[in-house]
Design a protein around this nucleic acid. Structure first.
Lengths: 217, 217
DNA sequence: ACCTGAACACCGTTCAAGT
DNA sequence: ACCTGAACACCGTTCAAGT
């Protein structure tokens, strides 16, 4: 699994072949079929490892706020550090089983704090969508080149080929090489988290349900 | 291109082979190489068509608000209707050239209305990340099965196999079959859009720059 | 410029055979 | 249970050849 992810990192998702993995661990391609039924199962395993790496970075699990923040930041950071892993997100399979424990704890904590079930999903979705969507947005907007220079070139190329046609695009492209994407992500994730917290408080007031535990907030 | 997207729809992304496309349009595989240099160029073309389909559904381009709302809703709706197209998002290549005109118009309108360049990117990213991230979140959470039943099964399976272990997961899973994801997405996108508008107003006050045109607001 | 058909180097996977 | 090696049906792509 680790070998597969490391190949993905270096060669891209298309480079992850059963033959390549086998070669790297010094075995025959068919030897791997003892451990995975087929390639789709191998991708499931990679998704599993991805989720583990994301949740491993979470610093605190004492409140739903810190868990939600941790899982969102982790997803963003890991996918930014390993852009070639993003195709794993688009694959089928649902939440990997390695994530059941964490998600269960997160939801338990949210429900305990007064979230309605649908509001918990809404909050969870709001924050996580922003995190993984940010990675996709940066890639879609700026391209997925390894070096920033390539991204700038991608955005500037059409502008230069037809001067004046895309004036606003050009004015943004001119600034892009001085951007730190974290400065875009950071206020965004903060804003989502405070918004979610405000919704929780309001939902608690409406339902008249008190907090289960003051200590966690 | 349309044939490629239709195969993607029916057979999944892995089914999109040069041989399959050629067979469907009644030609030899090698005949396609007159129109695409290689498979990566073919994927670029598919991304291009995807963007065109998304922006075709935009109802009004009179204000940056309606453009931003339109592109976000379009991305969400198209990807929900064609889940097998999501892998195209994870591919490299940057913004397809068919999107230059629209994005240029959007940014021009935002800059005119008083957004700083970085704030325009922030707002654009906030709304679009939520839209495409929502699709991914629903797939990651619920799996990508065609039928809702399969999604429920995916979430319920671990719960049933180890009863009581994931109580909160189970309580959410029990409600999932009555959910309409649009009811999660709808308030989310509304909230993002009003938030962005508030930020624009504040940014305009801070810079002391007046609106370029009252009519557009 | 556009299309063909044979060929090449790859891929996931099956199968029969070994330990 | 675990591993091998040959084989099969596929894939993207090259190449020489045709119009």
């Amino acid at each position: 699994m680790e070998v597969a992810l490391s190949i993905d990192d270096r060669e891209g998702f298309d480079g992850v072949t059963i033959r390549a993995i086998a070669g790297e661990i010094g075995a025959t391609p068919m030897a791997l079929y003892t451990y995975f039924s087929d390639k789709s199962a191998l991708c499931d395993g990679m998704r599993d490892r991805l989720f583990v790496q994301i949740s491993d970075g979470i610093v605190s699990r004492r409140s739903w706020q810190s868990m939600l923040e941790g899982i969102a930041r982790g997803a963003y950071r890991i996918l930014r550090d390993h852009p070639n892993w993003t195709p794993l997100l688009a694959h089928d399979g649902g939440l990997p089983s390695s994530g059941f424990g964490f998600i269960n704890d997160l939801w338990e904590s949210m429900l305990k704090e007064g979230f309605a079930v649908e509001d918990a999903m809404r909050a969870h979705g709001c924050v996580m969508s922003f995190a993984v969507g940010s990675v996709l947005f940066e890639r879609t907007m700026m391209g997925a080149g390894d070096v920033l220079a390539k991204r700038i070139a991608l955005l500037k190329r059409p502008v230069e080929s037809t001067p004046g046609q895309y004036a606003s695009l050009a004015s943004v492209a001119a600034k892009v090489d001085r951007w730190r994407w974290d400065d875009i992500f950071e206020p965004g994730i903060r804003s989502r988290l405070t918004g979610v917290e405000a919704n929780c408080a309001r939902s608690r007031r409406q339902s008249g349900r008190p907090r289960a535990s003051r200590a966690q907030a």
